Computed example of a mutant assay.
Amino acid sequence: MGRFVVSPATHKTDGGRFLASFSVQRSQGNGSYCRVFRFDKTFASHNAARLFAVTQGWLQTSMQHPPEC
């Protein structure tokens, strides 16, 4: 997504639902940036969790000044 690499991921819970997460990476010159975002919300399907992760990754990388954690 632009100058960032966003990698969405899903994880199946013991209860059969799915968790969403994504990582954002950027390398520029001598510096690099990598951050992982994990969410507490669970989803009924792998596809729903993946769509959420992709959407959150897009929002994070499209903001001019993303919030700090």
Rank of each mutant, 00 (worst) to 15 (best):
M1P: 00
G2W: 06
G2T: 04
G2Y: 05
G2F: 03
R3N: 04
R3Y: 01
R3V: 00
R3C: 00
F4K: 00
F4E: 01
F4D: 01
V5Q: 12
V5P: 00
V6R: 05
V6C: 10
V6L: 06
S7N: 15
S7R: 15
S7H: 14
P8D: 01
A9C: 09
T10Q: 13
H11E: 13
H11D: 08
H11M: 10
K12Y: 03
T13H: 06
T13K: 02
D14W: 04
D14L: 10
D14T: 08
G15F: 10
G15S: 15
G16K: 06
G16P: 07
R17T: 15
F18L: 03
F18Y: 15
F18S: 02
F18E: 05
F18A: 01
F18D: 03
L19R: 12
L19H: 07
A20G: 01
A20E: 02
A20V: 04
F22Q: 00
F22E: 01
F22S: 00
S23T: 12
V24N: 04
V24M: 03
Q25N: 09
R26V: 02
R26T: 00
R26L: 12
S27A: 11
Q28F: 06
Q28E: 12
G29I: 09
G29S: 07
N30K: 14
N30I: 08
G31Y: 14
G31C: 11
S32T: 03
S32D: 08
S32Y: 09
S32Q: 05
Y33V: 01
C34V: 11
C34A: 13
C34F: 12
V36C: 08
F39T: 06
F39Y: 15
F39K: 03
F39E: 07
D40E: 14
D40I: 05
K41G: 02
T42E: 15
T42A: 11
F43N: 10
F43T: 10
A44H: 09
S45E: 07
S45D: 07
S45R: 09
H46E: 13
H46M: 07
H46I: 03
N47L: 12
A48F: 01
A48E: 14
A48K: 14
A48S: 14
A49V: 03
A49K: 02
A49C: 05
L51S: 13
A53M: 05
A53W: 01
A53T: 05
A53N: 04
A53V: 05
V54A: 12
T55C: 11
T55V: 06
T55D: 14
T55W: 14
Q56W: 04
Q56K: 10
G57P: 06
W58K: 15
W58A: 12
W58M: 13
L59I: 08
L59G: 03
L59K: 08
Q60K: 13
Q60F: 10
T61L: 06
S62E: 11
S62M: 10
M63C: 06
H65I: 09
P66A: 01
P66Q: 04
P66W: 08
P67I: 09
E68P: 00
E68K: 09
C69T: 13
C69K: 12
C69M: 10
